[in-house]
Simulated assay, not measured.
Amino acid sequence: MAEAILNQPQFQDVDKAREYLEALRWPHGPVCPHCGSLGKHLVLKGKQYRPGLYKCADCYEQFTVTVGTVFERSKVPLNLWLQAVHLMCASKKGISAKQVERMLGVTYKTAWFMCHRIREAMTGDNATLLGGPGSSGIVEADETFWGTATNDEGEKMPVRGGFRHKMMVVSLVERDGQKRSFHVAKVNGATLGAVLKAQVHPAARLMTDEAKWYIPAAKGFASHETVSHGQGEYARGDVTTNTVEASFSLLKRGLIGTFHAVSEKHLQRYCHEFDFRWNTRLSQGWSDVDRQQAALKAIAGKRLTYRRIGGQPTQANV
């Protein structure tokens, strides 16, 4: 099925890809990324102009559909960009940069950078609070641990018992709704409290396990209900953290089976990627094409340069 989709014209031809992206981003006509003007902008034609170049009727600046997006100034053909977006959106456990390199015929460095740019487009705006009016009102919170953390000098922390040498991720899942994950330096009442206060509506019912750090962090919500995993309790009526734990299962399978090693510097970007696919999953009525189009509609205003992303890719981050 994926191969049949990638045989469509927008994935095979640069001009068709541009027309597809223009129709998706500009359903009511070209919009100038410089001044925001919507109108009958001048189409620049001729051998001296590249295809798809416009001149704004108001500010007179030139632009294309990729200006101001994660695709801006990329030398990768636009149809290959669309293929990469679709592959990342359709791969439930993610797709490695090495696999993108092989499938698109680009260098590993290019594939790695493309994947991070697409992850930037997948980053949510978190404009609304979870568990507010119009939702189920239930928010599950839990934390998970991954790999080995690094210190301020980039050196790996010494491995010891427990979880304190690991990277830590906190996830919030609105029952039958959105998921948001955050890489935190420490898991304690202060860090969890800051995340919960910023992301969860005061009227929400908060559900966690019995971990002690949630006691001070959960103050200020309609209720804080817990299940005791230590006593073998995983659900009590509608009180459970099974949903957020299921989302962790997908994240861990991707990190272990697809990417193998993810540095702490980029862990948050991978969390955004898995959150995006979770929030646009099949059970919520989204198809692979819907998910791909949602990602393409979110490319504006998120330009990511190689310098900003920080550092060379390594073969471990596959």
Rank of each mutant, 00 (worst) to 15 (best):
W81M: 01
T144A: 10
E264L: 08
L296H: 00
A222M: 11
K75T: 07
D142L: 07
V14Q: 12
K265P: 02
P33H: 04
P33K: 01
Y49L: 09
V195G: 01
E19V: 13
K302Y: 02
A4F: 10
K252T: 03
Q99F: 02
L282V: 14
R73D: 13
G124Y: 10
K302N: 01
D142T: 02
G161H: 08
I299T: 15
A127V: 14
E140W: 09
F71K: 00
V195W: 03
T226W: 04
R205W: 14
G46N: 08
D176G: 05
R175Q: 14
F71G: 00
A4W: 10
Q8I: 05
L196W: 06
R18C: 03
L255D: 08
L250G: 03
R164D: 15
V173P: 00
R119P: 02
T144E: 05
A17L: 06
L42I: 13
T240D: 10
G52Q: 02
H229F: 04
R281H: 09
H86C: 00
A198H: 09
H183E: 13
E210F: 03
L53C: 09
F113H: 05
W278D: 14
G154R: 06
M1S: 13
E264H: 14
F182D: 05
G124A: 15
L87H: 00
L104K: 02
H260I: 07
L44V: 07
V244N: 06
R281I: 07
V43T: 11
K92G: 00
N79C: 13
I256T: 10
L250F: 14
C89L: 01
A84M: 02
F163V: 12
R291W: 05
A300P: 00
T191Y: 09
D290C: 09
R291H: 04
D152G: 13
L24H: 07
Q199L: 01
E140A: 13
Q268V: 10
A218Q: 03
L267T: 05
R50Q: 15
A4H: 11
D125L: 13
L87N: 00
K212V: 12
A111Q: 06
T314P: 00
G237C: 03
E61M: 14
W112G: 01
R102Y: 08
E22C: 12
L130N: 10
H165P: 05
A185N: 13
E225A: 06
L255R: 03
R117W: 01
H229C: 06
Q12R: 14
G285T: 08
T148H: 05
V76L: 13
L87E: 07
N126D: 15
N79K: 10
R73Q: 12
P313H: 01
S91I: 05
P51I: 04
R205Q: 15
R277S: 04
F276C: 04
E174N: 07
V159N: 04
I118M: 04
E3M: 10
E233T: 09
K45L: 15
T241H: 04
S181T: 12
F182G: 02
A84E: 01
A222P: 07
A2C: 12
Q268I: 08
A295N: 05
Y49M: 07
F163K: 14
Y108I: 04
V262F: 11
G132M: 12
P9I: 03
C35G: 05
Y60G: 11
A141W: 08
K156L: 11
K47F: 10
A218D: 06
A246D: 03
F11H: 05
